[in-house]
Structure formats: C-alpha cells, structure tokens
Design a protein around this nucleic acid. Structure first.
Length: 423
RNA sequence: GUGGAUGUAGCUCAACCGGCAGAGCGCCGCACUGUGGAUGCGGUUGUUGAGGGUUCAAGUCCCUUCAUCCACCCCA
C-alpha cells in the first residue's frame, strides 16, 4: 500500500459504480436542459489566467486557482468556473449567434483549497445560461429549470428550496436607511454570512462597519421582511412567471441572499436543503456585464451552476439514490472447455450482432466460478454450451435471478434470449 | 492560510494502567470435479501511515513528518 502513488489531493476516483451515478446525474441534467430547449456546449479546461482577472472574486483568482506555466512560458489556469469562458465564446461570435442563447454544459473544474465535506479540488458542475434577454421572465425561466431538475431527481419542495433576491433591491433599501456608499460592499458580504454568525457577532460586526444602532435595527427589520419584493416591479414579474411555470412551491424570496461573486448585477439565487445539513446545492444570478468585460458588446445574461457532489450527498442522505445496473451485461456466456471455445465465442458474437450486451468467459475455469462471476457483475442471463448441448445442437440458458433453466436450439437462441430479457 | 480530530487486515472497527495484534464483513477452499446467490466447516489477510525517542517491553507515552476527515476562510 505504501508503494502505490497517491492520487492528487482533493481529486476523487470514480469507480464504475460512482461513475454510473455521475452519468445518471448527467443524464438528468441533459434531460431537463433539453426539456427547456437548451443546447449543450463545451469550453476548454485550460484557460489563460487573464480570462479570470477581469471579474471573478479576487480570492478565487489569486489564491484558489491552479496556475502554472506551460512550456512556452504562458500562464495557464485549470478553469475554476465556466462563466468567463462562456462570455468569451459569446463575444467571439457575437454577430452570428441566434440570441437569446440557451446553452448548457457539464464538466470538471478545479479549485485549490482545503477539501472538506461536499467539496473537493476537482469537481464536476452543470452550468446553464440564458444569454441575451434582460427580462425578469428570463430569470424566472432559469430558476424554473432548477426547480424542474429537483423534480426530475426526486427532491421535493419540502426538502430543497430556491432562495431568491435582487442585489439592486437591497442596494436601494440600504441607501434608504442611510448606509453610506463605502459601507455597502462590506456590509453585503456580511449579510451573505449572516446565518453563520451568532446574533452577538452579527451586531458586533455591523458596528465595526460603522452602522448606528438605529440602522442595525432597520437592517434587521429589512432582512426579516419576506414581503420586501412586493415593492420591486422586476421581482413581482419574476414571481408571477415562476407561478405560471409551475415552480413556485420550490421558490422563496430571501433578502439575505447576496452571493460572493462580484460579477452578479441583479437577481441572485441559491438552492439549499431545507434541513440545512449541506452547503448550497447551486448558485446563480444575473450577470449583465460579463460579455463586455471580455471584449464583446454588452449582453444580458442569467444562469446558474450545480456541483455533482452535494446533490449526490443529499440524495444519499435521503435514501433517494437510484438503483443502477452493476454493469451493462445482459448475458454471460460460459465456456465449458477449450474444445468448445470457438463455438462459445461464436455464440457471443451472434448475440452481440443481434444487439445484446454480452460478456463471456475467455479461458477455462470451473463452471461454478463462472456462474458466480456472472452473478457478481449483474448479468441477467447465463448461456451454457457444454458437450451435452453441443451434441444436440442446442444451447442451455439460466435466468440468474430465479434459477430457472432450459434449452433451445441454436437458431432459436436469439429470440429466446430476447424474450427472457424482456420478462 | 487558521484551528481541531483521526490514522490498526481489502472494508468497517476493537485491543483496560505500556504487557502474546483481534472481530465482523469480504476473499479463497471444501461439502457440491456441468451451475451462482442460501447454509455449514476450514483457511488467508498486518512494516499498527512513515521516521526517530523514552522503556525490560510501545498500536498505546513523547517529538517530527505525511495523509485523511471536520470546521473556519472562500464559494464558480
């Protein structure tokens, strides 16, 4: 064990059963994306460091990105997020794309930080964006997609919740209670962390920023007001559309949702498990400046990102993981001995040409072991060709789940196998 | 980057005050040389993460180091 080379810190090996689960999640993401008419795309995993310098959080770029020099001396980053790459792709073909764009992607990302529960250094993420539509209805569509995804994977609205806010609304409200401009940015960061702080620490830290007692009271009142959105035309329209899209049971207004990324310009949202056991399931919002920041003409955009890991942990803790096949094997073809090898191989071939998924014994082994193997890999059916069957021009079969056994002629085999697999 | 916890068989974990390294599961074999999953019997599995120190004696105490986990920070 000491001799094996360790995996890179924060990476995760996906053994076949883990991979089957990730592939299943990917399928659900694809399904929901396509239900809303979104197209899949892929961006490079390597990007120049400069792409992120513009607008991501400072800490993200300076401390949490994997950066190295390639052989030509260029500074390369393992992408820590997708949105800047998307912005570049849009900017590069801005004049030939059919707006609004409905695009989605799934792939690996890297972030150099201490791994912990629900977080690794290499992780996989689903990104989905609607680009070129400034309306609150566009935001509602994106949030409705998130709700549809939860339904698709079997998470109910009493288990997960999408919390929505609008940074513009909050900025206006902070101004109205007399919070000076220079205090607003640090205050927003503090509000974002409020539920992690004790009430005492919260008051202490708001005072540090320079708020008076009366202002803290107003602020607390503001953050407790779940009806605050009714003052905002865009949020009114947003919630009306959410209702019409059938997503309202999953969506609530929450004035303390801010999000850390600097590039969000308006609506922001996060999804959480209602039990509060895990970190955010996904986060997103409106980012209208990003395309122009990478050199394009200004385009409005809204989107979100979901990691595979927290969703998986949540489904697991709720006992909601799907039962996936152990392997794609439908049929296991046994091998009696060397004299029947070619004939057994020909049977494997015939079944495969009929589109049936077959694994088969390649070298001589006791039949008992072959059946055990067939069982362990989850084959539904075993096909047996021994001297007795061969003498009669027949093949034997066995349904592994029930032990039911029988024979049929070689010419009947494919039809028989198909029939047994469907049962 | 800061703080805390934990490293013992393939896996999950025991081992009293420092006194012969164990159990369950798994795996292998046999009962059952043409039949898996059940059962019974038998067997295998170790540099106790690594290095050093104290001691008659270290899984256990001390130091160093590495790794993992948890929280903070941060969160695409």
């Amino acid at each position: 064990m000491t001799a094996t080379i360790r995996p890179v810190k924060g990476t995760r090996d996906y053994y076949p059963e883990d991979m089957a689960l990730r592939a299943w999640l990917y399928d659900q993401m694809r399904h929901v994306s396509e239900l809303f008419g979104y197209q899949e795309y892929q961006a490079p995993i390597l990007e120049p460091i400069g792409l992120y310098a513009a607008k991501s959080g400072d800490e993200l770029v300076e401390k949490q990105s994997y950066v190295f020099e390639d052989r030509g001396g260029d500074r390369i980053t393992l992408r820590p997020e997708l949105t800047p790459s998307l912005a570049r792709m849009v900017a590069q073909r801005q004049n030939q794309l059919a707006f609004p764009l409905r695009w989605w992607s799934f792939g690996p990302f890297w972030r150099y930080e201490r791994p912990q529960k629900g977080r690794t250094r290499e992780f996989f993420q689903w990104n989905i964006d609607l680009i070129g539509d400034p309306s609150p209805e566009a935001e509602a569509e994106i949030v409705a997609i998130a709700a549809a995804f939860f339904k698709q994977v079997g998470l109910r609205s009493d288990e997960v919740q999408i919390r929505v806010n609008d940074r513009r609304l909050l900025a206006k409200e902070l101004e109205s209670i007399g919070i000076p401009e220079q205090a607003r940015t640090p205050l927003l960061g503090l509000i974002d962390r409020k539920d992690k702080l004790s009430p005492e620490a919260w008051i202490l830290q708001t005072k540090d920023i320079g708020l008076a007692n009366a202002q803290i009271d107003s602020l607390n009142e503001l953050l407790a007001n779940k009806e605050l959105w009714r003052g905002s035309e865009s949020l009114e329209r947003f919630f009306q559309a959410i209702e019409a899209f059938g997503a309202s049971e999953y969506v609530v207004f929450e004035p303390s949702i801010i999000r850390g990324l600097q590039y969000y310009t308006g609506t922001v949202f996060e999804a959480w498990d209602t039990a509060g056991e895990f970190r955010a399931l996904f986060g997103g919002g409106r980012y209208d400046n990003l395309v122009s920041d990478v050199g394009g003409k200004p385009v409005e955009a809204v989107g979100f990102a979901v990691g595979d890991l927290v969703i998986t942990l949540l489904l697991q803790s709720l006992g909601r993981l799907p039962e996936l096949a152990k392997s794609p094997t439908d049929v296991f073809v046994t091998l009696f001995d060397v004299s029947l090898r070619d004939k057994s191989f020909a049977i494997m071939n015939a079944l495969r040409e009929a589109g049936i998924r077959v694994a088969g014994q390649l070298t001589s082994e006791k039949l008992g072991k072959q059946f055990k193997y067939a069982d362990r890999i989850g084959a539904k059916l075993a096909v047996i060709l021994g001297p007795d069957e061969a003498a009669k021009g027949k093949v034997g079969f066995k349904v592994l789940a029930t032990g039911e056994q029988g024979e049929c002629t070689e010419s009947e085999m494919i039809a028989k196998v198909r029939q047994l697999l469907e049962a």
